[in-house]
Design a protein around this nucleic acid. Sequence first.
DNA 1: TTCCCTGCAAAACATTTGCAATGAT
DNA 2: ATCATTGCAAATGTTTTGCAGGGAA
Lengths: 146, 146
Amino acid sequence: MNAAPGTDTPSGTVRERSTRQFRAVRDELGRSNDFRSARDIHAAVRAGGSPVGLATVYRALQTLVDTQQADVLRGEGGEARYRACGESHHHHLVCRSCGATAEVSGPAVEQWADDIAAQHGFSDVSHTLELFGTCSTCRGRTPAQG
Amino acid sequence: MNAAPGTDTPSGTVRERSTRQFRAVRDELGRSNDFRSARDIHAAVRAGGSPVGLATVYRALQTLVDTQQADVLRGEGGEARYRACGESHHHHLVCRSCGATAEVSGPAVEQWADDIAAQHGFSDVSHTLELFGTCSTCRGRTPAQG
DNA sequence: TTCCCTGCAAAACATTTGCAATGAT
DNA sequence: ATCATTGCAAATGTTTTGCAGGGAA
């Protein structure tokens, strides 16, 4: 539990055989550039005609993260959400009310993060950034009924 | 699941009576400006001489978050971590290896987040930002033994 | 006294893991 | 044929909830 990465064995995460299930998960992940939950991906893969177990989905996602083919992010509820790597790094602006998301790219922030880390002597720096707000469409709605 | 804030009833989160347990949790939370897990806070409160149930700690923390007296953040393991509000807004740079944390403040990022949100017509914007890296002390250690 | 808050334990939820069968090489 | 990977279900760890008793107002 919460063990530091690098403490556990690196073996076991490297996939040596290509299976239908693993490809299905990777393909499904690559279809969208939004962060999605394991449960969501599992359902989508199944809907696509590939019977896959939930545990297998988790294992495939973990492998993809370990091999840097996917990014993982924790939602507000604490569930992990995954997104395929490879595209340009960007963040998300999420509406608290309707859930609409807008992709935002911030070179300034990337630079700032890198700079700050360097100032503190940190290397191999990554960061997670999420913006939450209320979109213009939802502004006029009843925010509370109590 | 992942329900948008504002959709649920605001009542029930407002505390109408002051109890020893609730004060103990709030006091313990205010002792440190680091993000701490519920389990950690629970242990600390108990060690301080106040027998408190874990569920009560969770309820107190939830109340503090709801009343904007505390900030909540999800760790990489998915566990929620809490910090008392009131101080200047800043972020954390966490070492992946030894877990050391450094507080970093970024007015530029705050400004950027606000600006980006405004460009998209979003209001009441908040954000979460975490930096992960390897500190200089841990750079020389054996990253793997396999 | 009243009824909110607490405490315990079970439930709910996301994720991991053990072990036998399956399928890729 | 070999052995990594799958699948199920049980285990794990975190957070929530039901219900009855205790303490604050």
